[in-house]
Amino acid sequence: MKYPTVILNGVNVRIDGAGRYNLNDLHKSAVEGGKATESQRPANFIKSAQIKRFVHELSKATKIASVKTIKGGIEPGVWGLELVAIRYAAWIEPKFEIQVYNTFVEAKRKKALAEINRNTARLEYRPLTDAIKHEREAQGKTIAPHHFSNEADLINRIALGMTSAKFRVHHEIGKKESIRDYLTPEQIHCVTELQRANTVFIGMGWDFEQRKATLMGIFNKNHRQPLIEEQHRLAA
């Protein structure tokens, strides 16, 4: 199963569907940062009577299990809501608590910004489809679904290196899910700018090859290097 993550000291800290962070990943991150010992594993942390009381009250307040322990299987470990994760970080070392808190805040800021950008990309797609429709109507040509999907995949091939169908397979995305929800911030920015440009070019009556060449030029000038740098950051 694939989990969203936040990166801390070069370690991917997984987050489950309920918003619980993997405390074993946090421990690994603290060890990598020279802030934790083997004795500070999550299993020892949750044994504390004080922590058990805290977990109980937090579970009552949030209406979900604030700590989930998985024993055995392919993904064993302890998972805790954000407040538990921060408290665990404080239990390890105060400086690590500050680092974890700042990382969580920045991750949420980036997530909110990415959501804004995804919504912008969705809104920007409507003018593109309208331009396709108006251009074909002006030429007295019929309009079929593939005329819209062809333009979308022109942009996807440039921005993502593949069609939306291949992107779904590569990232195991369901047919009813939007691929935009799986794009990185720089990918969303790239797709949005190319959509805007393509809308203008269609309105100007440019043919497919002319638009493709110009869009590739925009990609190479404005987006190729930022995308490469973003991938390096995500892989670090």
Rank of each mutant, 00 (worst) to 15 (best):
144 A>G: 04
144 A>P: 00
141 K>S: 04
155 I>Y: 00
147 H>Q: 07
130 D>M: 11
121 A>W: 02
138 A>T: 12
138 A>R: 15
127 P>H: 09
152 A>I: 10
131 A>H: 05
130 D>S: 15
142 T>M: 11
154 L>A: 05
135 E>Q: 13
142 T>P: 04
143 I>W: 07
138 A>S: 15
153 D>E: 08
140 G>W: 07
139 Q>M: 13
118 R>I: 13
155 I>K: 02
129 T>P: 01
119 N>E: 13
123 L>H: 11
141 K>D: 00
135 E>M: 11
123 L>C: 06
130 D>L: 15
146 H>R: 08
125 Y>H: 05
118 R>K: 15
118 R>Y: 10
148 F>S: 09
146 H>M: 07
143 I>S: 07
152 A>R: 13
135 E>F: 10
154 L>I: 05
127 P>C: 09
142 T>L: 13
126 R>Y: 05
123 L>G: 13
122 R>P: 01
121 A>I: 02
153 D>H: 03
117 N>C: 08
129 T>F: 02
155 I>P: 00
133 K>L: 01
132 I>N: 01
120 T>W: 09
147 H>D: 12
133 K>P: 01
123 L>F: 10
123 L>E: 15
128 L>F: 07
148 F>I: 11
127 P>V: 12
124 E>Q: 14
120 T>Q: 14
118 R>V: 11
145 P>T: 05
147 H>Y: 09
146 H>N: 06
139 Q>S: 13
152 A>S: 13
125 Y>L: 12
146 H>P: 00
140 G>E: 03
137 E>D: 09
132 I>Q: 03
127 P>G: 12
151 E>S: 14
134 H>F: 11
145 P>L: 03
147 H>W: 05
130 D>Q: 15
117 N>W: 11
141 K>W: 02
139 Q>C: 08
136 R>W: 01
121 A>F: 04
150 N>M: 00
145 P>I: 03
141 K>H: 01
126 R>V: 13
132 I>W: 03
155 I>L: 05
135 E>C: 05
138 A>F: 04
140 G>D: 05
121 A>V: 08
141 K>C: 00
143 I>C: 06
152 A>V: 04
146 H>E: 09
146 H>I: 01
131 A>E: 06
139 Q>W: 08
148 F>M: 03
126 R>L: 10
131 A>V: 07
141 K>I: 01
150 N>F: 02
130 D>Y: 08
131 A>I: 08
131 A>K: 07
150 N>Y: 03
145 P>W: 02
132 I>K: 02
144 A>F: 12
148 F>W: 06
130 D>A: 14
146 H>S: 03
118 R>N: 10
136 R>Q: 06
123 L>N: 14
154 L>C: 10
124 E>I: 13
150 N>D: 09
120 T>I: 13
149 S>V: 09
155 I>F: 04
139 Q>F: 11
127 P>M: 11
120 T>D: 12
145 P>A: 03
152 A>G: 05
135 E>S: 15
152 A>Q: 14
117 N>Y: 10
143 I>R: 06
134 H>P: 00
155 I>H: 03
128 L>M: 15
141 K>T: 00
146 H>K: 05
119 N>F: 02
138 A>D: 11
142 T>A: 13
146 H>Y: 08
137 E>H: 08
139 Q>L: 15
138 A>H: 06
148 F>R: 01
128 L>N: 04
144 A>L: 12
121 A>T: 12
132 I>V: 15
137 E>A: 10
133 K>E: 06
129 T>H: 01
155 I>W: 00
144 A>Q: 14
138 A>Y: 04
129 T>A: 07
117 N>S: 15
